[in-house]
Amino acid sequence: MIKLSGIDIDLFFFKRRSILLLLLFLMGYACCCQPVIQEIPLFEGRPPGTRIQKIEEEKRYDPVVDSLVSRVIFPTLSIFKPAGIKHATPAVIIVPGGGYHTLLIEREGRKMANALNEKGITAFVLKYRLPSTEYFDNRQVVPLMDLQQAIYLVRKNAAKWGVNPEAIGVMGFSAGGHLALMAGTHYDTSFIPSLPHTHLKPDFLILVNPVVSFYDSTTHSGSRDNLLGTNQNAQTLNFFSGEKNVRNNMPPVFLAHALNDKVVKVENTLNLFNALRGQGVISEIHIYAKGDHGFLNNTPPRDEWLNSCFYWMKSMGWLD
């Protein structure tokens, strides 16, 4: 056997071959586990309710990672499909927050989609239109129109996208949580030009530090004013305050909030939970001492609430 600097040549090449095979395996594993991503428009042509003829391009604050988006004119749905799964999966439509002013499309959208994919859940990140009197008629319902259209598309294409049509939920953060809750309370009022008898009711809701009430005692005034304007009457406030519209036939709800949230008061979640209990709606609540608004900086509560959410989905029969 030939020696090379005191190393057996056979052993030398064996190690090189082993390392090469390991690298090829890891590359193949990474490829097969990457989610299938596709972004599609919510509507064909100009979205309904768009007022102006000349449409400006959307404003992107970070051209590199696109982490914040505002001035959304053409809403889209990004599909994150976990690769390698043959059976129908549960689906979660993710609604990022941002106070109805911007969309935290990376932190509360794509990153969460990847976390759901790891559990075999198909994720859909909704880039919805933000209310603007400059661009839209009846700006108050434009975001809800987009979310209802997303629910409609996921149900319509359930077989095509490998989704279980009886396990389609909506996950919302902050103002996105408010929008998700609206979809769960006003599902029998269609704001989209859809087919008759379209089923717009989500099967479940996941609300993380959600804006719930639009009344001064607990509301996030920025979200309320951006959506409704500054002159609101009692009827409008009631319609857009989730705790006022809880009913016994709405979808089951999972709630998570941080006690030290200085942006959206924890009372939003606590009051909603009490309203859900009062109507007999299946619900689960998790309140954490720390976590700020949105469980920033990957603090431990982020993994805790997410794992609790997966356990809840499994216990309810949506996640194998």
Rank of each mutant, 00 (worst) to 15 (best):
I93A: 09
V65G: 03
T76P: 03
A83F: 13
F80G: 04
E57I: 06
V92N: 03
P47K: 02
P47H: 04
D66V: 05
Q53V: 06
L23H: 09
E57A: 12
Q38T: 15
E56P: 10
E58G: 04
E56G: 14
H87P: 03
G45Y: 05
C32K: 07
A88L: 13
C31N: 11
I94G: 01
E39F: 08
K86T: 15
C33I: 09
K59V: 08
F80C: 09
L21R: 12
I73K: 03
L77E: 03
A83H: 11
T76F: 02
A30E: 12
L42F: 07
F25I: 03
K59L: 07
D66K: 02
P35K: 07
V69I: 14
Q53R: 08
P41L: 05
P90I: 03
T76Q: 11
Q34D: 14
H87Q: 14
Q53A: 05
Q34C: 14
P63C: 11
A30F: 04
E56W: 05
I19M: 09
D62Q: 10
E39G: 09
C31A: 13
S18F: 12
P63I: 10
L26S: 04
I73D: 00
D62P: 00
V65D: 02
T89Q: 14
V69C: 06
L68I: 07
A91I: 13
E39Y: 05
I37W: 00
L23E: 07
F80E: 01
K81D: 10
V69L: 13
L24T: 10
V64A: 10
P90H: 08
E57C: 06
G49T: 07
G49W: 02
Y61S: 13
A91Y: 11
L26C: 04
S18C: 08
P63N: 04
F74N: 09
L20V: 09
P82H: 10
R60L: 11
L21G: 08
I52Y: 04
I37T: 09
I19P: 06
L22C: 09
P75Y: 01
S18Q: 15
S18W: 15
V65Y: 08
I85H: 11
F43G: 00
C32V: 12
R17D: 15
P75M: 05
P75A: 04
G84M: 06
T76D: 00
T89A: 14
S67M: 04
D62Y: 03
K54Q: 11
R71L: 08
C32E: 12
P35M: 06
F74Y: 10
V72H: 00
Y29D: 01
K81L: 13
V36I: 13
A91K: 11
D66Q: 10
V72T: 02
P41W: 01
G28P: 00
F43W: 12
L77H: 03
I93Q: 00
